[in-house]
């Protein structure tokens, strides 16, 4: 136990300041009222769905919870079921084999809900595009509020995407 405590003290607190929302990432008009958004801002729950990614985006979503980004410190956490979630974080081009599972996950998420598409593939279909096996971008399958490009997007960009989704459009 002494060694663990010593290592924790030696490492110190590494958490950095979180990024700000970025209106450029918004894919659809903010649908939620300010009162709902204020509620989300203190305690947002996310269900991640890999709908066919190469697993690169998953690495960066994991990184959002490392001590530097500490997403959970902002009151934003990942949950095990869509029924507990306010937001879906969807990666990948949507493979045909994940189309039904993604739609069911979306339907299982209670209203009001938000969808953030992660990565070039989630935004446009990326290098995999649309094919016999791929539906392409996430918005081809479920409605998307915010889309974060990048291959993969950095943890900072992913956090900006999440924060943009739960903020009212600037000036409104």
């Amino acid at each position: 136990m002494y060694q663990i405590l010593k290592q924790i003290v030696k490492t110190g607190i590494r958490t950095e300041r979180p990024p700000q929302p970025d209106e450029a990432l918004r894919a659809a008009e903010q649908r939620l009222k300010a009162a709902v958004l204020r509620h989300f801002a203190g305690c947002l729950t996310i269900r991640h769905v890999d709908a066919g990614s190469c697993n690169g985006c998953e690495l960066e979503i994991h990184a959002c919870n490392n001590p530097y980004y500490n997403l959970e410190g902002l009151g934003i956490r990942f949950v095990a079921s869509p029924r507990h979630a306010d937001m879906l974080l969807v990666t990948g081009p949507v493979s045909k084999h994940m189309e039904v599972a993604l739609k069911r996950t979306y339907d299982s998420t209670p209203e009001p809900k938000l969808v953030v598409a992660i990565g070039d593939c989630g935004c446009t279909g990326g290098i995999f595009g649309e094919s016999y096996a791929s539906c392409g971008r996430v918005a081809n399958v479920i409605p998307v509020d915010v889309a974060v490009p990048g291959c993969p997007p950095t943890p900072t960009a992913i956090m900006q995407g999440i924060l943009t989704a739960i903020t009212a459009r600037a000036g409104k």
Binding site: C54, S95, H97, I127, F128, A133
Partner: peptide, 30 residues
């Protein structure tokens, strides 16, 4: 398994040797 089958091998066949490198780097991102 097979849920993330997204037609990678078919996609390669629309590319040339240089273009394919980018796709090869995304078969498994890790």
């Amino acid at each position: 398994l097979g849920y993330t089958h997204k037609g990678i091998e078919k996609r390669f066949e629309a590319m040339d040797l240089l273009e394919g490198a980018k796709l090869a780097g995304r078969v498994s991102g890790d």
